[in-house]
Amino acid sequence: MSAMKEFTKGLWKENPVLVLLLGMCPTLGVTSSATNGLGMGVATLFVLIGSNVVVSLLRKIVPKKIRIPVYIVVIATFVTIIDLMMQAYAPASLYNALGLFIPLIVVNCVVLGRAEAFASKNSVGKSVFDALGMGLGFTLALVTLGGTREFLAGGSLFEVKLIPGWSTDFMLVTSAPGAFIILGLFLAGMNAMNMRKARIKGEAYKAPANLDCRHCNICDMGE
């Protein structure tokens, strides 16, 4: 039951991109097509699972003062493994498109954020479900954003043209500013839905209290 909750919260209620607004660099950088978004999302998902498991295993023995360097080493190791694996076994076109961004997963705040805010305080099992939910939520957001941009730019999805006559010269959506604008529209849409839900229930809409900066403890290094 609670495992299920850890899993589903990443998909919608605490979606890392759409609610927590973490990992903006890959979100805006690679989502020029649905395929790229999917590749980046899945790569991040694997890194998340790996790092969450190891961080959770180490949570009782790692000295508090060096926990961040240890987490970075763990994450960097998994990212390098994924990078090498993709170079060896993934289609060349996918690796060429994502190659630049794979090493950047190391500093993706989604990964470090989950390690610090969740895996370092919870059991391995819960951490795996958290990683799965967050990773899938991240993937879902990236594929949606990438698909929207790809469709607006050329009328295609997953590199298949759906509308043959669609112009291919709508440059705004393929550039980073366009990604920002579309992401902003997504956020507005999500807020509108949440507010509507609250209004139907007859209460005033409040952002979840545990999702603001005060909740994050990444800055308090040892007491």
């Binding site: 060096i66 240890v70 763990v74 960097a76 190791t77 493994i81």
Partner: peptide, 13 residues
């Protein structure tokens, strides 16, 4: 501690 973690990571890599 940090050295051991790094060594394990290096071996794996």
């Amino acid at each position: 501690f940090l050295g051991v973690v790094s060594a394990v990571a290096a071996g794996l890599l």
